[in-house]
Each structure stands twice: as structure tokens, then as C-alpha cells.
């Protein structure tokens, strides 16, 4: 019997160039988020900042994608339970040439397809719409099951908020995915510790989180969600485990507002707007690499 979390020992580490690329893309996510939210005048800066390295690692190391082909049937899928972080994802979809930068620059303006929450009907490269928290893991499960029926091999990544763990449907999907051996389903919990009304564990305690996912029959890993090397190495190890039958839950320990000191220290930063001088300070800090590597 394999150990519960046994993975192949061979873990191809990303090389120095790749590591630099991933860090650069995470910085790009943060700077673009600042820029776009200045257009909308309000947005979820800190929710993006906690998962910027996760976005970067998925889109520039883990996921199989084809440039300019958002509907390529063999692509890996990405869904977001925490849809309010979409503003950080849109720039990456432009980088993949799924839609044009002109569209990006019209973020949230009348008739533009890009809103605070991602919309698969309007935005090429968005695999599933979201907004109401708790649906995405079920949607990802459906993609995993449907892929079997049409004989396609791909992985389905679902980024969940830690506050989202309070939604009942997440656990329906968790039970269901393990039962149906959806080994190509990978949930990533952005464990940044905060939700709108305060600290997650003060509002409704979700710990012991790893034990819960393990008890639901998932293969569980914990990782520093801002460490691109650790993230990339873990995703690579999962890719090499082709016989996986258990769905995977990665608990990514992160900081809300990571990269901008005053956001990290102020939980009220779930949703907000930066005055131009504050924006400049934030951009400067991000470029300076205020992010602990």
C-alpha cells in the first residue's frame, strides 16, 4: 500500500530561468491588478496578491495551454471559487493571447466583458464562470468526469478561497470527487486567513483543514503559496504521477495583500481603492520585491 501522500521521488525542480520567469509573472499580476483596479475605482487587490504566485506558477509552469487557443480541447482547466481574484488573471489571459489588450484596458467599462467576477460566456480563456462562492469545485468535478466520457486527458485546477470552506457545496463536491476517483482534479486552497468580515477562523473556524481534506479521501499537500519553487516542484511531481486516482488538495499558506506592507497588516483590505499616491507606493514596493522570497 502506498503511503497516503506518496509521490514520485523524482521532482524536477524549475531551473533558474524558469524561477525568474515565475517571479516576474507574479509581479506582473500585482502591477496589472493595481492598474486595472484604478480603472474600476474599486476591487479586490489583496485577494489577488495572496494568489499571484499561484496564478503565475499554474499559467507558466504547470498548465498545458496553447497560445491563442483558449478553446483547445486538450488544455488543462482552471476554475476559481474565489472569482473576485479574476482581475489578476485577466492580464495573464492577454499574455497567452486569448484576447486583446484593448479589451483588458476597458476593464469594467460599459459593455466590456471583464468584470470583477470571471464570465466564461464573455471572456476567452475563462473555463467556468464564478461569483457565487462554493460552486467551482463541483464544476471542476464535472469537467473531470466529462473528460473521462469523451476520452480527454487533462488536469482540472480549482482555486478556492479559505473562507469558501464554509460553503456546504464544497464538501458535497469533496465527497463526490473522492468517491468517483477524480484523480485529475486538483484543488488549491488559498489559505490567506481572511474573509470580508474578518479572520476566517474567528468567523467560522475551518481547522484542522488538512485533516478534513484527508478525511474526505483527498491527497493533501501543504505549501508556502508565495514560494514559486515549492509550488512548481509540487505541481511537477503531481504531473509525473499519472496513475493518480485520488483528487489532490493543496493548502497554499499565503498572506492576504502579499507584496504591499500596508495591505498585509490591514485585514480591511479585502475590497478597496487606492488613491494615486498610495498606488504609487504600492507599485514601488511590488517592484522593489517587497515579497519575501
Amino acid at each position: 500500500m502506498p503511503k497516503p501522500n506518496a509521490l514520485p521521488e523524482v521532482a524536477p525542480r524549475p531551473d533558474a530561468d524558469r524561477i525568474a520567469l515565475l517571479r516576474n509573472k507574479a509581479e506582473f499580476v500585482r502591477l496589472e491588478t493595481l492598474r486595472l483596479i484604478q480603472i474600476a475605482k474599486v476591487g479586490h487587490y489583496s485577494s489577488v496578491f495572496s494568489c499571484a504566485e499561484i496564478f503565475a506558477t499554474l499559467y507558466y509552469d504547470a498548465m498545458r495551454l496553447k497560445r491563442g487557443e483558449p478553446q483547445w480541447p486538450g488544455r488543462d482547466r482552471f476554475l476559481m471559487g474565489k472569482g473576485h481574484a479574476a482581475v489578476g488573471l485577466y492580464p495573464l489571459l492577454v499574455d497567452w493571447e486569448f484576447f486583446s489588450k484593448d479589451v483588458l484596458d476597458g476593464y469594467t467599462r460599459l459593455g466590456n466583458p471583464l468584470g470583477d467576477h470571471p464570465d466564461m460566456r464573455k471572456v476567452p480563456g475563462i473555463d467556468f464562470s464564478s461569483g457565487s462562492i462554493g460552486h467551482a469545485l463541483s464544476g471542476g468535478l464535472g469537467m473531470a468526469l466529462g473528460g473521462r466520457a469523451v476520452s480527454r486527458k487533462y488536469d482540472v485546477y480549482v482555486l478556492l478561497g479559505d473562507g469558501e470552506m464554509q460553503e456546504g457545496q464544497v464538501w458535497e463536491a469533496a465527497l463526490s470527487a473522492a468517491h468517483h476517483k477524480a484523480g485529475n482534479l486538483i484543488a488549491i486552497v488559498d489559505r490567506n486567513g481572511f474573509q470580508l468580515d474578518g479572520q476566517v477562523d474567528d468567523i467560522i473556524n475551518i481547522e484542522p483543514l488538512a485533516d478534513k481534506w484527508t478525511a474526505f479521501g483527498w491527497q493533501v499537500h501543504e505549501v508556502d503559496g508565495h514560494d514559486v519553487v515549492a509550488l512548481a516542484t509540487l505541481f511537477r511531481r503531481l504531473k509525473t504521477d499519472a496513475e493518480r486516482t485520488r483528487p489532490v488538495c493543496i493548502i497554499a499558506n499565503t498572506s492576504k495583500g502579499k507584496g504591499v506592507g500596508y495591505m498585509e497588516s490591514e485585514p480591511g483590505w479585502h475590497l478597496g481603492y487606492l488613491a494615486p499616491s498610495d498606488e504609487a507606493l504600492a507599485a514601488e514596493e511590488i517592484k522593489r520585491g517587497g515579497i519575501a522570497q
Binding site: H135, S138, V150
Partner: peptide
């Protein structure tokens, strides 16, 4: 199983793959 909401969202996911749920 007894998870109707999960079933409906999963059906949406299935439909994205070209299968008809």
C-alpha cells in the same frame, strides 16, 4: 448521492467538455 447542488454544478462542468448531461 444526496448532493443536488453539487450535481447541478457538476453537470455544468460536464457540459463544458462536449458531453451532454
Amino acid at each position: 448521492g444526496i448532493s443536488e447542488q453539487n450535481m447541478v454544478s457538476a453537470a455544468a462542468g460536464i457540459a463544458t467538455t462536449g458531453a451532454m448531461p
